[in-house]
Design a protein around this nucleic acid. Structure first.
Lengths: 206, 206
DNA sequence: GTCAGCAGTGTAACTGCGTTACAGGAGATG
DNA sequence: CATCTCCTGTAACGCAGTTACACTGCTGAC
């Protein structure tokens, strides 16, 4: 009888759910089969093997992110807005980001935002290799930042280092206090992105 | 008889070698035991379990990196030099970096450079929370960048996307060409780090 | 009608992993 | 000699990915 035949799409959806809820490690072939009320071999028939399955999930996620529209008046604010939105999209899928990272598909994730960034860099007066460099700098910054951010969230058991009273700490207690506090990623991201973009675009007018 | 008793240090060294040569996944307890000509249980007796073993390796690497001395005349160049040297140290241990990332110990890696960065930010006129933000921005940038960089190296099988002829490509063929070429990470890192630092320090004088 | 062939499923196994229960051996101490 | 601690080896458990192989149900050809 085979109650309502199993489809590749169903397998992918179930795998996606599993990964989203419990992380990539929780995605076992047996577990997935059990969840779908079928046998392991069916999974293999539909998706090949675990590796291909994860690849498919990544592909799916990248497509989901899709194009990103800039917002704002000046090129700088528009670029920052693209960066922030891209970060938001990535942050919404922390486990998938880790997977993308492990399989070296980071370039792939960049693409949705690349065209928008290129356009903005161009209207800001950047040309050729210099424009390319600016675009790449922004992309690296976004993905790198999100990676660091996700890592500290997924493993938050960091043992708090006791702040040693160094010379600089005594000279600037406010700084020491600020460094002892956990960073506010949202703020930090926006601030450093603004700083980066500002300098990058300044080169266009020089 | 037990030929020259096994020591914890020997286990760590062998594990380190294995990870450096073939990556963290190649570090299996059985393989390690075989390499040391002993039995798995001895490994467990000396290091507890695989998790603790990896933790110990990370700790070792962080200590190896040690303090980082700035070089250059202006605070900006000195900060950039710290960033570059930190990147160099991290790049020399790509597998360890991945491990650090997975166990959320990124903060730990930051520490060697943090004091130097704080000092430079301070002499550049940054104070309190703003100085802390600058230091953190640089740290995030370095580690994020290295993470992205290592990911693309460890998995270089990225299928080359055929460059579509978009409107912007036709307008600026040099840019299109530059984006089609693989990025030069060294150059890109230095450039974006300079850009970031420049803006961050500019806030101190404003 | 029947029979080959294909799509899809299920059973049961293989290998390799981390881990551990348990039985010792070597050397110090009484 | 007995005993105790430190350390090592044997053999297993459970779980992972993967697969060989037999099977079912359906479709189309004859």
């Amino acid at each position: 009888m085979s109650r309502t035949v199993l489809t590749r799409e169903q397998v992918l959806q179930a795998a996606d759910d599993l990964v989203r809820q419990h992380g990539p490690d929780a995605l076992t072939m047996r577990g997935l089969a059990a969840r779908l009320g079928t046998a392991v071999t069916s999974i293999y028939w539909h998706v090949g093997n675990r590796e291909s399955l994860l690849d498919a999930l990544v592909e799916r996620a990248v497509e989901e992110i899709g194009a990103i529209q800039p917002a704002g008046r000046t090129p700088a604010t528009r670029i920052v807005s693209v960066a922030r939105r891209l970060r938001g999209e990535l942050r919404a899928r922390p486990h998938l980001i880790a997977m993308v990272h492990e399989r070296g598909l980071t370039e792939r994730v960049f693409l949705p935002a690349q065209r928008a960034l290129v356009r903005e860099a161009h209207t800001a007066g950047l040309r050729g290799a210099r424009a390319a460099e600016a675009v790449r700098a922004v992309q690296f910054q976004v993905v790198g930042f999100v990676l660091v951010e996700c890592a500290r969230e997924l493993a938050p058991a960091e043992p708090r280092e006791r702040p040693r009273k160094t010379a600089s700490a005594r000279k600037d207690p406010a700084l020491a206090r600020a460094l002892a506090r956990p960073a506010d990623p949202e703020r930090l991201f926006t601030a450093s992105m603004r700083a980066l973009v500002k300098s990058l675009l300044a080169q266009g007018n020089a």
